[in-house]
Nucleic acid binder design. Structure first.
Lengths: 330, 330
DNA sequence: TTGATTTTCGCAAACGATTGCGGTAAATTT
DNA sequence: AAATTTACCGCAATCGTTTGCGAAAATCAA
């Protein structure tokens, strides 16, 4: 079946293409009688404007590109879900590509975005991407880029992220409030600025407000390592009474160890983490956590994108605030 | 900065647009001297072909549409991840939209797909979508639709799904092998064919091969309900020794109850579920499960899509097989 | 040198929509 | 009845590519 186009409609109605086009979009030049006829035929013939022709003509695509390290990730999922919602409301569609934390993929994805002349890009940097030239290239083409989560340091970029320091501090506050004596604080890949920020903020706060509390810091790269680290430290003479997990991944490892050793939470061990909430809700009692909502972040990112698209250069870093969610593990 | 186009290249090189176009794609008509010059300038000017113009001209978009109920879902995530990988390998990009299990959204999404003239659609039906007219409309436009997971019954559609009956049977087999005496089997929304199939297969198998085993069946709609159901049945005089969870969601509820009641797995209670593996790996011991890999399903779906695009009508239902993954909970 | 080939390239028409500008008929004004 | 508006509508260029066909230039054969 051949697609129905303006031309086809025009022929059938003995009208010009321009008239049909205008009638369809309610242009005042066209009489309502004509408009009705056009709409009627368009409906019965299931006319769908060809997005490519429009985009070619208008040079704007109504598509946003999204780059995430992995789609199958609770945090990014909710981020994507949020911008998908907003995009649809605003008449945009989403093109989602995953970098798998691989710089080369990232480059290819950006190329696809450029070729498709996306209206804007939401990007989460791969763990080890440092060369931002490609992103400059987008800006050169007037395609705004909103970085999220893993963002570049330079302030000339538009970025939204979690209030990492605040997260860590809120966690620390609650640990102090619990009256913890010895705490094990587990962080992620030390090469990531997110790990650095969280650790630094956490450590500073603890040293300042609870200098007597003994803290052990460790970086782990996976759930398995976190589990091992937990067990290792627990077997030492000086046991700890509270554990802080910087990410879901780490929390998972910790909780496996806790279950395996049949440790009672929160009596024998306090647990607190930074999370979007899903993983903490899997355990009994629910794990207390500092909320970092990918969903909220997505909403914020979208606002930034729209603002940038509309007009002004809103070059700034926005953060979404964090809050403590009581679970029962502290 | 103005985008570099064929026209621009042509002007700068004193060549015609057609020559430039052909040079860029290594057409034999063009001398290698010219080709080199063209390539050189194209590179230095960062030429990126305009996908819209190409698509308008060639009438093919190199984009697949994907409709899932929710992006933030472990199963769909891995499905998406799989087709994303394959798509990129094959030069396609993905446009992902979520229906939120809402038929109206589904319609809108399909409209966007039609307007963007996607090359094909991967669709998971919303829970209560029964009117497939819109999907027919896609086929009318020669846009193949590959249904996955939640698929229509009619065999005229292309579909890939998990081997639901097999899953249930494998679970039943292992329950029998464990020597279970009383089992609680928890299923999802009874309106979904996936629940029906799994339950029916499970029940038939159990009645045939272990008629003396006492099975209690129940449908629950959420984790919370599953947790409540588990507790309710446990408080009865006749306790059960094995629980079967049809989905991750149900498993989560069950495990919360198990943790809350401090029940020992697998000594006091055997646990088995159907899952893609992530949730079962969160507990200690790991929960044994029948694997339904969204990733595998994605790969299969992509093969179907490609086959259909290439030529033949491969109207058939393909299923990806299931296998038992030993966790330690049985 | 001349005719036949082969290389190498340009013309122009598409693809489907948008839009400034100009034109015609009807309606309104003098 | 002539002049002026107003309401409707069409012409044609344009967005950036692709591609069939024809033509000029270069090479070759005789």
């Amino acid at each position: 079946m051949t697609n129905t186009t303006l031309k086809l409609l025009a022929q059938q109605l003995q009208l010009s293409i321009s008239t049909v086009s205008r009638a369809l979009k309610d242009h005042p030049d066209i009489s309502s009688a004509t408009k009705e006829k056009v709409h009627a035929l368009a409906n019965s013939l299931d006319y769908e404007p060809n997005a490519y022709a429009i985009q070619l003509r208008t040079q704007s695509s109504k598509i946003f590109g999204v780059i995430v390290p992995a789609i199958a990730n609770l945090f990014y999922d909710s981020f994507i879900a949020a911008i998908e919602e907003e995009s649809r409301k605003n008449g945009y569609a989403l093109m989602i590509l995953q970098s798998s934390n691989n710089t080369e993929n990232e480059l290819n994805n950006l190329k696809i975005f450029r070729q498709n002349r996306v209206s804007g890009v939401f990007a989460c940097l791969s763990a080890h991407t440092h060369n931002l030239e490609v992103y400059e290239k987008m800006s050169d083409r007037d395609i705004p880029v909103v970085f999220f989560d893993i963002v570049p340091k330079d302030n000339k970029y538009i970025k939204v992220r979690m209030a990492d320091e605040r997260c860590a501090i809120i966690a620390a506050e609650n640990i102090i409030q619990r009256g913890a004596k010895r705490v094990l604080a587990l962080f992620g890949d030390p090469a990531l600025s997110i790990s650095q920020k969280r650790k630094q903020a956490f450590q500073q706060f603890m040293e300042k407000y609870a200098p007597k509390t003994h803290c052990t810091y460790e970086h782990t790269y996976s759930s398995l390592e976190a589990e091992a680290a937990f067990k290792k430290h627990l077997s030492k003479t000086q046991k700890f009474d509270t554990v802080f997990a910087m990410t879901d991944e780490i929390l998972i490892g910790v909780m496996k160890a806790i279950q395996a050793l049949n440790i009672k939470v929160p009596k024998e061990m306090g647990v607190i983490s930074i999370s979007n909430g899903f993983i903490p809700s899997l355990y009994h009692p629910n794990i207390s956590y500092v909320e970092t909502s990918g969903y909220e972040l997505g909403k914020l990112a979208f606002v930034q994108m729209l603002a940038n698209l509309k007009g002004g250069k809103t070059l700034s870093e926005l953060t979404v605030d964090a809050r403590f969610i009581e679970g029962g593990s502290m």
